[in-house]
Design a protein around this nucleic acid. Structure first.
Lengths: 341, 341
DNA sequence: TTGAAAGCGCTAACAG
DNA sequence: CTGTTAGCGCTTTCAA
């Protein structure tokens, strides 16, 4: 069975119904200037003949592909495997599909050759792209964001670009206040890397709340792990912290994986969580509740992030929305990694 | 800046170089019947003018989209969020891109309306699809597999379809033998659902090795969790097991998440792992080594599964390979959830 | 080694 | 309300 033999076009339908291809096309594009009778006649013929529109032909004629690009930074090495982003994309996908868009991954390969992200998008005729955790200052990302292709940027912040991220500052503030209310007065921070927006914001919230509560911050109690997502990074940052002559009674990690690494470092140091040190994470990834002790953490709303991102991007594409910066609320999820002192 | 103003076509290049569109096209398709001089002239002009081919036009003319579909079963509710599949897709993506293919998610929505997977593929002109953990007996999946569109099926097995999966039988066998060598004689199984291929295979390996070792299997020690991936399922299946009058000293779970749920059930029952009961998982997802105690488990080679799947699919598409059934070796990763008895 | 012409399947003015 | 016509950008015979 060759595929071409069953490829039905609007011309076939036109011939069969005695109408013109134009009219057939109009029916499939929901034009209103087609009589009800003609419309059903065409629809019936189409169904009988097994007609399906050809997306490529349509895109060629309309310059609209109904395809959304998904751009991951490849440098960070996380990508899909990270449960947080996997979850975000899943929800993005569901929202996009409901509105008739399909998703395609954007890479720098273009037909097997090297190119830029922007070139890839132009090559494929992508209608808009969601940029997930990619540094907007990286030249190739910047090029894309500055182009005429609508973009939504997640977890970063940039002038004139539609962005969406969690309330990172507020999340850290909530966490620190919670620890304070449990009686903690010496609170450290495992930072997620000062070169990322979310990392800086979470650090900022930590510092702000410390100040608001009249606690003295100490530079040595901020341990930079370089990257949110690595358990190893958290382990190392916590290990450094544990070398201090005076230890904090609590630590806020800028990511759950950092917190998980910290848990291990603390245990190996012969101390217990929350017995000796209380730990709070950030994200609420699936494994947060699986570790021992289950992690108290600041939950980001993955579902909402993905859904809103799709909605924003489509709004931009269809010209019904401008580039706003959305900040979504977070929620402190209390489990068992903190105790009263 | 309107996009159309900077859309350069082969006609523009032809005009600029004084050559014909045909010749320009030939250059970009690596035809050999173009003189070296002409070729460089065209290439230079193209670069200067910022020319990019138009994938839609190309697909329309050639009936080849250089797009691979990724089909997830939506029913199981896992999808990207599961670290195992996320990892598989990541590697699939990398291999596919290196050969000039891009990835698109296949859904049942087609332009926002309902349709079948096959219709979606035809609509988009998808060249081939990787079917990830979707039951091939589900009618719409079966329809796709039976079509003329090349498919590779992961983690299932079906006549005349290219498939790829881990050595599930062998993995269970290795695990049981390992437990046996540690001295265990009463070994239970948390099954991953008898309606999935991998679930049945893992059960089979378990039963076979029991028999080979001369151990008596007991029907009550096989606890079905209905689904590989749910921690909750593992918790419940293990809880049922713990109600038996006589308890096994070891349990093989058909998935790491099942094992993680079992860990919790055992702990809540007042027993310890591996003190009272040894536990072995299957998959080696990231959290396997994060739980307490770190899980001994059968590792599937995500990287290889994804890479081979891409390679097989492209082989099928390009007609250089037939539909084989590949089984990849697994590896027992020993951590701390089992002890000698 | 190069090019003219036709066509891939669809849409969008514009007439009728 | 329906149809004619002319593309969208590219590839592919086939002839020169």
């Amino acid at each position: 069975m060759r595929r071409d033999e069953l490829l039905i076009t609007i011309y076939d339908i036109a011939k069969r119904t005695g109408l013109s291809p134009t009219t057939v096309s109009k029916v499939f594009n929901n034009y209103t200037d087609v009589s009800a009778k003609t419309r059903t006649r065409i629809l019936e013929a189409a169904k009988e003949m097994g007609y399906l529109p050809n997306a490529n032909a349509r895109s060629l004629a309309t310059k609209r592909s109904w395809t959304l690009g998904v751009l991951f930074t490849e440098s960070s090495g996380l990508g899909l495997r990270h449960p947080f982003f996997g979850g975000v994309i899943e929800n993005f996908k569901a929202s996009a599909e409901a509105k008739g868009y399909d998703l395609m991954f954007i890479s720098r390969d273009i037909g097997g050759n090297n190119g830029t992200y922007l070139e890839h998008c132009r090559f494929r005729g992508i209608d808009g792209v969601v940029v997930i955790y990619a540094d907007p200052n990286q030249p190739e990302v910047a090029e894309l964001l500055a182009s005429d292709i609508p973009c939504v940027l997640l977890d970063f912040n940039r002038a004139n670009v539609a962005t969406i991220c969690s309330d990172n500052v507020g999340g850290s503030e909530q966490a620190v206040r919670y620890l304070y209310e449990l009686g903690h007065r010496t609170i450290a921070h495992l930072s997620g890397g000062r070169d990322t927006f979310a990392g800086r914001q979470r650090l900022l919230g930590y510092e702000r709340m410390l100040e608001e509560l009249g606690l003295s911050g100490r530079e040595e109690w901020i341990s930079d792990s370089g990257d949110f997502f690595s358990i190893q990074g958290g382990y190392e940052a916590m290990t450094r912290l544990l070398k201090q002559p005076e230890l904090p009674t609590a630590v806020l990690a800028a990511g759950d994986n950092l917190a998980i690494g910290a848990l291990r470092a603390i245990r190996e140091h012969g101390l217990s969580v929350p017995g000796d040190i209380s730990v709070v994470g950030f994200d609420d990834i699936e494994s947060a509740e699986l570790v021992t002790p289950p992690l108290t953490t600041v939950r980001q709303n993955m579902r909402e992030i993905g859904g809103r991102a799709a909605q924003m991007l489509i709004g931009l594409i269809e010209g019904v929305a401008g580039a706003e910066a959305v900040v979504l609320p977070v929620e402190l999820v209390i489990r068992e990694s903190c105790r009263k002192v």
